[in-house]
Design a protein around this nucleic acid. Structure first.
Lengths: 177, 177, 177, 177
DNA sequence: GATGAATGAGTCTTCATTCAT
DNA sequence: AATGAATGAAGACTCATTCAT
């Protein structure tokens, strides 16, 4: 096979990342074996290792990718947030996050919680997440000035807390191992 | 050998649970091996298995124990919350949780996040956590009636979100694996 | 099982090393899998890894052990070599090495050649072997003064060369892989 | 595409063999992957397999090629050896072998030791080497008659032993794996 | 009651080789 | 002729758990 185009390569990587998301949603990071991700994405073991150097790197990319994508989705809402009330903003943000996260076969909010747990162990991943949340908090700061009892800090905590609530307070969907 | 008193047994169990907390804080649930917990608590492998049927059960107990203990600490604050403003309550609650969580060698907020991740794949643990949070939300409900923009749901989300922020936005403290 | 005595531990290590010798004689270092050594020594995988941290370490110990043991055997001959002619010494040394090396199921001279090849890649192993040969050469130096055309350097080269000849010029005994 | 001339083919094969020599000098046979040889010779995977049926064959050719080339170099020295003393012959032979072996990026004496180790597990390679050494020994036989304490057998052992000494007693030059 | 050596299934990863283009 | 992406079997190693002493 001749050289793959960058676009084709990106498609393959995305396939693998989506398979990882599905597996991690189902069983968490540790209980997901590479073999499961490999089966899920329909490629061979060697092929996956052609696109990612190992499980850790794949997991890190999977976690990071979801943050980056959500970031892009959130930008327009932050742009027009100055015309909203705090309550309206929170409602819209929560709805957007839910819409963004719920997907065929997995929910990125569940993945995100596994990601937080990973970040506590992996300093690189933690740095990425810290930057991501710092960016959001910074974007909220000027708005929060007008939203009396809600500070930027508090708004961010609310969004994070809602993610936990949504993920944990849902009925369980799968068995361990 | 003479039978151990219930008190002695309880001491042993607590020793093991605390060792588990320290290990989980450091490396997360999956990367913590039973051997590490065994070394940390200073007992033998056989001894640990005398007190807990397996790793999953020990982890579940470790997670649950922290919730139960925090529950007890939170009760008095909830009792006198009707005399506080929402802001004062939130400040006090956050301070109490921090005081309760920060310990010699570990932070239970970090452990809790690993616990959420576990709960997503362990229905029993999820049920325990759901009950715990439902209880708190129920206790907050009558108070929230007076705290205009803050509903019980929102207050709980704030407390959860603060836990994430505190754990993730702290500078990393440990190496991977 | 209660603690093993140091003696018992040493016996186990020797079992494993001898299994490694047999396997390496048969297939060389690289083509010998840990599973083969494990099967050969009759222990479980975990047990072997209880005594050696990994394949590399086991191979290094197996190589080193044969040198150390031969060293001990060679000492008495070196002690009484001053009463021998060079030719007599060479004959006796070669015979001693052959006696020492030929064993049930393997020949340590073959193992030694695999060891040289390994040493070219593993600086630690190379250092051990260099020391071993330097010691022998030093012991030969005072004797060689009397053995006119044979220097210590030359005598050592002869012993090494004979090992290669004995191992390579024998009829082949096994298949690859 | 146009057929390659035999000369071009031979150039390609030599390129690959030299790449193999460099890699084997650095890491030994087993730790050298085909990918490394492929990268080193600057060709594609498919191209290398056009010239050699597989790794084993390539390694065998690489080993053999060095023997054949050395053979040719040795012939003139053997031709005029009858006019030399044993000591002079040995000195010249050692110098010739060193000159022949030391090359830009590798030393064929190191490659030869890896080759002996390979020969112990590859009967075909062993046969080739046995023939090579037998030829040399045969050439030395008539000369040795005049070189009193040195038999042909002993002279060959010396040359082999010197190769080991030169390779092993040099300071290590590379990292593991 | 307590020990800790032993087990072995399961995990991640590599790499010689092929073949569609 | 040449490419290089893909394959998948095989390898090294881990670790929760047990049980003889």
């Amino acid at each position: 096979m001749p050289k793959l185009s960058d676009e084709q390569k990106e498609t393959r990587r995305r396939q693998i990342v989506e398979a990882a998301w599905r597996c991690i949603d189902r069983k968490g990071v540790a209980a997901t074996s590479m073999d499961e991700i490999i089966a899920e994405c329909g490629m061979s073991a060697g092929a996956v290792y052609l696109y990612f150097p190992g499980k850790d790197a794949l997991v890190a990319v999977a976690m990071t990718a979801s943050f980056v994508a959500l970031s892009a989705e959130l930008a327009p809402l932050l742009g027009r947030a100055q015309n909203l009330t705090a309550e309206a903003f929170l409602t819209e943000a929560a709805a957007l996050i839910e819409r963004f996260s719920k997907r065929e076969g997995y929910d990125l909010r569940r993945v995100a919680i596994h990601g937080w747990s990973q970040a506590l162990i992996d300093p690189e991943l933690q740095a990425i997440q810290r930057d991501f949340y710092a960016t959001i908090e910074a974007a909220l700061a000027p708005l929060a000035a007008r939203w009396k009892p809600f500070s930027a800090d508090l708004l961010l905590a609310l969004l994070l807390g809602n993610t936990v609530k949504a993920a944990l307070l849902d009925r369980p969907r799968q068995r361990r191992r």
